[in-house]
Amino acid sequence: MENAKPGQAVELHGLQGAAHLNGTRGHLVRFLREEQRWVVSCEGDDYKVVNVKPANLKRAEPKKEYFVHPVTGQIMVPRTTSAPVTDTSIVSEGIANLHAAVLGAFYNKRKGGVVVSCGDDYMLAIEFDGPHGNGGVYGEMVFADKCTSAQAVVRKRNCQRATELGRNFLAGETVQYIDTNEIDFFSLLSKYKMQAKWDGLIDLKSGLRLYTVTIAR
């Protein structure tokens, strides 16, 4: 397991004391330097966490994608839903209307997340965590803006448009798509960035910086 890093998919093998875990798949969480073992979150309903020597790990193709919750440190996986993603995009103009449409995606439609886009190049995506205060919402946010590094992520992921990164980020969620003009998009993005916090995490599903955001009514 050379050049291993958190988030990589692995398979356990060669275990003797816990032979029942051989063949179990999971992903690396962090390396314990003193113990010289990897913390591994195993796939399964209970998401069992074990400490494993590098010699008992081999790389595997991921079946699921994970990210670390920036507040709790909990390993998260995309939630599943029985509702199909069939909604067509709506168009919203005016910063107030756009902001209301984002909140409405949670409070009125009970969506798992929202993607706001402007053309093929710019988008922000928010995965809703729950209500906040008087009509606000907690969530995690990623965005692709005019920043060259964000645009490089779009090209690196072979996406035809930035909105595809939003779909990657919100995998397993029902999503409301909102299209808008460039002025309102960047006004909304600036508003949400002021209410967001980045703890140095990169979302593994989209490849973009992962922010915690508190959106007030």
Rank of each mutant, 00 (worst) to 15 (best):
H99K: 12
Y47D: 05
A60P: 14
D120K: 13
Q36S: 10
Y138N: 11
A101C: 05
I126P: 03
P54M: 00
R79F: 10
E61K: 14
N134V: 03
G119M: 04
E43C: 04
I75R: 07
F143Q: 08
E140V: 06
P78K: 02
L98Q: 07
V40R: 01
V39R: 11
D46C: 00
E35A: 15
V85E: 09
A100Y: 12
F31N: 05
Y107R: 07
C42E: 06
N51V: 00
P70L: 07
H69Q: 09
P131A: 09
K48I: 02
F143W: 14
V52D: 02
A96F: 14
E65Q: 13
R33I: 10
V40T: 08
G119D: 03
I95D: 07
K48R: 13
E93L: 09
G104V: 02
Y138I: 00
R110A: 12
K58V: 06
V52M: 01
G130L: 05
L32D: 15
R33G: 01
V71T: 15
K58M: 10
I90N: 04
V116N: 07
I95W: 14
T72F: 11
V116L: 07
K64I: 12
V91M: 03
D120M: 01
H132M: 04
W38H: 02
F31G: 04
V91H: 11
L57H: 06
V39L: 11
L124V: 04
E61N: 09
L124M: 11
V68W: 09
V40L: 01
Y138A: 00
S89G: 13
I75E: 08
P54A: 03
H69C: 06
Y47R: 09
F67L: 03
A144S: 15
P54F: 10
A100H: 15
A83V: 12
T86E: 11
G133F: 10
D145R: 08
N56S: 10
D129C: 07
N56A: 06
A55R: 11
R110W: 11
T88I: 04
L32N: 15
D46N: 09
K111E: 03
N51T: 03
E34Y: 10
R110E: 12
K53S: 06
I90C: 05
E65P: 02
V142T: 15
S41W: 09
S89P: 11
A125T: 07
A144F: 12
D120W: 06
S82H: 08
V68E: 14
Q74N: 13
V142H: 08
D46Q: 08
T88H: 12
D145A: 15
Y66K: 00
T72E: 09
F31K: 05
V77E: 10
M141T: 06
R79A: 13
I95C: 06
V68Y: 12
S117T: 14
S92L: 02
V77A: 07
V71Q: 15
Q36P: 01
R30D: 12
V49T: 10
L57M: 05
F67K: 00
D45W: 01
V114M: 03
D46F: 10
V71Y: 14
V114F: 05
R59F: 13
G139Y: 04
V50Y: 09
D145E: 12
P131L: 00
A105Q: 02
H99D: 07
H69W: 13
H132Q: 05
I95M: 06
V39N: 02
D120H: 13
G113Y: 03
R33P: 04
P78V: 01
T80N: 04
P62H: 13
